[in-house]
Nucleic acid binder design. Sequence first.
DNA 1: TATTGTTATGATATAATATAACAATATCCG
DNA 2: CGGATATTGTTATATTATATCATAACAATA
Lengths: 163, 163
Amino acid sequence: MSVSKTIPVAWQRAHDHGQCIAPAINAAARICESRGIRLTPLRRRVLELVWENHKPVGAYGLLDELKREHSSAAPPTIYRALDFLVEQGLVHRIQSLNAYVGCNDPGHSHKGMFLICNDCGDALEIEDKGVANTIDRFASRLGFLLTSQSVEAAGLCPGCQEA
Amino acid sequence: MSVSKTIPVAWQRAHDHGQCIAPAINAAARICESRGIRLTPLRRRVLELVWENHKPVGAYGLLDELKREHSSAAPPTIYRALDFLVEQGLVHRIQSLNAYVGCNDPGHSHKGMFLICNDCGDALEIEDKGVANTIDRFASRLGFLLTSQSVEAAGLCPGCQEA
DNA sequence: TATTGTTATGATATAATATAACAATATCCG
DNA sequence: CGGATATTGTTATATTATATCATAACAATA
Ligand SMILES: [Zn+2]
Ligand SMILES: [Zn+2]
Ligand SMILES: [Zn+2]
Ligand SMILES: [Zn+2]
């Protein structure tokens, strides 16, 4: 990864995809193994495709890629695989984009938060206790029983501000 | 509004729609007036329909209602009106539901947050500085330029937990 | 009042996203 | 094995959203 003087190091570190595909797949395999559920070839391949994109990617984008090597693939094929991966916390759905992105840190439940660049379309997953805790406090004060939360912020990433 | 012993008063207060339609429309009219933009009859009517639902409602739901009195209405009709209302902060879009709900407190920019009941479908808008500030801090630490944020939490409202 | 630029709406078509329903296989487990 | 369960195949359809071009209303001048 090249280094820019004008782009904050924090962002560069946080955002470095590096060689992340194989480790992500291996981690997913271990997680599924330990849970006694099946990361079938199809599900594994969809997870790889999600990671290969290195950006949030839509279900139909993934479907097009999958079709090249798996001619029987149809919308339900990809949605089933994605539903499985999301349920298992291996992939996150970005609500504001109708798109999916691999989870940086699967295996232990975390309340993620995303910074989404409106220009390059990239999304950075942030581990954040503060936001999640604040939401929890609000909810419990109101007697609301939380089951899920989605925090998405959009704007311009450091790289896209330079132009 | 009836009072329940088992439902927190905080929720009941926060969630009391009461007679909110006329004040909301009047506030919207004043805001548009002051901004020099036009709350046309069509836009006003769509805003009324949003409020009449008292819940997040989808574009096509609104369209069906609008068609009864406005036979020329088509998808672009409703989406244009909604885009206008959202841009002006009079209506919020709930990303996780693909639905729209009237803003409780339009006129001054606020970073809202929603508690969404998975059972009754209702959504409570919460004014919250804490969450917004935390997100702001994260973003600026990373050099990310924020333009919008969406915070949505789902679960069960007090009423729906009783059953 | 004409001219003209701008904004808003009408109208038709189509794109993009997501699910229903049922059949066919594959896997698991006694 | 044989029956139950889980996964995938297949077709059709539902739901949400936008593109495009034409027309109408409005606003700002001349
Ligand atoms: Zn994650
Ligand atoms: Zn960017
Ligand atoms: Zn609001
Ligand atoms: Zn409820």
